[in-house]
Design a protein around this nucleic acid. Structure first.
Lengths: 186, 186
DNA sequence: TCGTTTATGTCAGTGTTGTTGACATATTTC
DNA sequence: GAAATATGTCAACAACACTGACATAAACGA
């Protein structure tokens, strides 16, 4: 990110804005931090997945099957909140390429229980590793050098966590951007 | 969500798993909580946006333009991390339908500074309202009745926040799912 | 002033991931 | 044996991302 953190045309607002840009609320920052944190959070795995010709959808399936061996299709659908058609497309890839295997359920033979193969476990491990690294770094972060005397008691930790989840080189830019809003709200 | 939280075929693992499902690490829960929290976090706006024929991409643009009036195209691209072609597709919609206006930059007339119109501010306000509501509720949540004697000092708050960001009716199911993993790791 | 760089816009094609609707099969349940 | 359930599959489509190529206007540097 490389914001000039300057610039404003005519007025900071356009023609007739009744309430101005949607007011300042406690927790508003968290909305944007969640966006930035999630953006970088999925960015790490994306790079690995690309090397395998997989996408985020594959990742999600592989992740949950790896973490919860024996998951059924229905459970997976409920977790991911997608249609079975969407799931099947990526699941088929993972099965054909030997990352996941299906086993017929024992108690209910209609069910297909999902398990990772060694390959699947290995890839899932690589993926979780980069995400765990980011999370751990965020948790260990020295309170993310909170530059403001944050008043809302309780938000701080979540806020710092999300900020620390952002790619280090980007944090300053995010802080600068959000400070920009704080100023114009004055 | 409606997990049986039961069931296991043959063994909880498949043929030969060297390290078993990618081990148990502090912060691992946060990875999944982030997924669930984000899933529900974007779910609220999605319902509103659908009524306008807009999608998430429109939301993100509208949001940042609303919060940071006068944003340039380049800045927006840097925030969203998408290509100008992707941005232009949704931005065009928002401009044509009078949610956003462009103004030629004063210092640099090549730039197009973006501002919300009244309509834009109104819609952005509606969208931010539902998200702020969820965030505030999460912050106010009585520590999200943490059911485990969480040992990692620091993770707790972030973990409870993310859990509290999940749709209330789903939280139990998520807890149940994650407990399932904790068990099998024993 | 002129050539280059920068900021933006646009056309065209493509890939991933989501959707709906319809239909098929095997298994369980009443 | 009929109905419900779990899963699979075909086909069409939409949202949103990408690449590559090219165009224009304005700013900038020599």
């Amino acid at each position: 990110m490389t914001f000039p953190a300057t610039q404003t045309a005519g007025g900071a607002s356009v023609p007739g804005q009744t309430p101005g840009p949607s007011g300042q609320n406690p927790g508003d920052d968290l909305i944007e931090l969640l966006f930035f944190a999630y953006r970088d959070f999925v960015g790490d795995p994306d790079r690995i997945l690309a090397q395998y010709g997989f996408g985020r959808a594959h990742h999600r399936v592989l992740h949950f099957v790896d973490r919860y061996p024996g998951l059924t299709i229905a459970e997976l659908l409920d977790i991911l909140r997608i249609t079975k058609q969407s799931l099947n497309r990526v699941l088929k890839d993972l099965i054909e390429q030997d990352y996941i295997v299906q086993k017929t359920g024992t108690s209910d033979r209609r069910q297909r229980l999902l398990f990772c193969t060694d390959r699947g476990t290995a890839l899932a491990g690589d993926l979780i590793r980069v995400q765990t690294h980011r999370v751990r770094r965020a948790l260990a972060d020295p309170a993310a050098e909170s530059p403001d005397g944050n008043p809302d008691g309780g938000a701080i930790s979540a806020q710092n966590f999300l900020l620390a989840m952002i790619e280090p080189e980007e944090r300053a830019a995010v802080r600068r951007l959000m400070a920009r809003r704080a100023r114009s709200a004055a």
